[in-house]
Simulated scan of single mutants.
Amino acid sequence: MTEAAAETRTVVVEREFAHPPEKLWRALTQPHLIAEWLMKNDFQPAPDHRFRLEAHWGTVDCRVLEIEEHRSLSYSWAAQGLESIVTWTLTPTGRGTQLRMEQTGFRPEQRLAYFGARSGWPQFFDKLDEVLARAA
Results as ranks from 00 to 15, higher is better:
Ala117Thr: 12
Glu7Gln: 11
Gly96Gln: 09
Ala113Lys: 11
Leu73Trp: 11
Ala46Cys: 00
Trp57Asp: 10
Phe125Gln: 01
Asp61Gly: 04
Arg111Ser: 15
Pro20Val: 04
Pro21His: 05
Thr97Lys: 10
Glu16Trp: 05
Asp48Trp: 03
Trp88Pro: 12
Trp25Val: 11
Val64Asp: 01
Phe124Asn: 11
Trp121Tyr: 06
Met39Gln: 04
Glu16Leu: 02
Ala117Met: 07
Pro92Asn: 15
Phe17Val: 05
Ala78Glu: 14
Gly96Leu: 11
Pro47Met: 00
Thr104Leu: 10
Thr87Ala: 12
Arg111His: 11
Val60Ile: 13
Arg111Gln: 14
Arg100His: 09
Phe17Ser: 04
Asp48Tyr: 06
His19Asn: 07
Gly81Arg: 11
His32Gly: 00
Phe124Ile: 00
Arg63Thr: 10
Thr59Asp: 05
Gly120Cys: 08
Ala18Gln: 15
Ala55Cys: 02
Ala79Pro: 08
Phe125Leu: 03
Pro21Ile: 04
Thr87Ser: 15
Arg118Trp: 03
Arg52Met: 10
Leu128Val: 08
Gln123Cys: 03
Glu102Gln: 14
Gln44Thr: 04
Asp129Ser: 14
Tyr75Phe: 15
Gly116Glu: 11
Thr10Arg: 11
Val11Gly: 03
Leu99Asp: 02
Phe125Ile: 00
Met1Glu: 09
Arg52Glu: 08
Thr91Phe: 13
Lys23Asn: 04
Arg107Glu: 15
Gln98Glu: 10
Leu65Val: 14
Ile67Arg: 06
Gly116Phe: 08
Glu102Ala: 12
